[in-house]
Amino acid sequence: MKKNRAKILAYPYMVWMIIFIVIPLFLVLFYSLTKGNIHDPSSLSFSLESYARVFDRNYLTSIVKSFKLAFISTLLCFFLGYPVALIIATIKAKYKNILLMFFLVPIWMNFLLRTYAWMSILSPNGFLNRLLSFLGLPALSIMPGQTAVLLGMIYNFLPFMVLPIYTVLSKIDKSVLEAASDLGANKIGTFFKVILPLSVPGIVSGITMVFMPAVSTFVISRLLGGGKESLIGNLIEEQFSLYRDWHFGSALSIILMIVILISMAVMSRFESDNDNGGAPIW
């Protein structure tokens, strides 16, 4: 009885999911496999043309570049984020919340606003170059360019690396660390033999949560890349907004989705090897 009643509570969500996730997904798949005028259903016919176009050299370059930038920013987020998560997890309670705030407050602000802020810092006549010239140093030209896109990605996605790792680290039983020390491990040994392996689930969540938005972003690359750094996100967006080619845009989306699914499957293998005490956020 109780079980059935609980099921009823899930219905609104299921309806929501079917209308806004499942049906659109099938529509995307449908458009990617057809050609013709989307406003005239009778003109649509089955075609793999859109998929063939993905392998055009220009598009492949963009796709590879997207993955390269997403990979680098994820890696940097990890090496920047892990120590921060470790510090927040081990610091005294009264400083902990202040430090956490530093990472949470930016998320509360609008994503576009944050990226525009980076524009005004990095642009040729921006804050950074004015500061440099004030100090008598040569100006830097990082925006527009890949470095600026990377900085934007790292800035925007770093909290998503820090939080899941922090969650897992703060859940590690202190007595386990004492046990490691008791058995002869010094601080470095305890970190590599106990803390790091126990935090793998958090690392996996963090990597997933940074990599996926980074690989599909188009706002950061548009604003900070100055239109020159076209990523797969930009390609997809252009197909729908500029070229009105829903078929090719859908095919690109499906390809991106498949690649993300594959990388998630690889990651979840890591996770299931260590499925204890983790905080799967994804």
Binding site: S175, V176, E178, A180, V194, N276, G277
Partner: peptide, 9 residues
């Protein structure tokens, strides 16, 4: 230790 503190990994 009181609650064993075994290494779960």
């Amino acid at each position: 230790f009181q609650r064993y503190a075994l290494f779960t990994h």
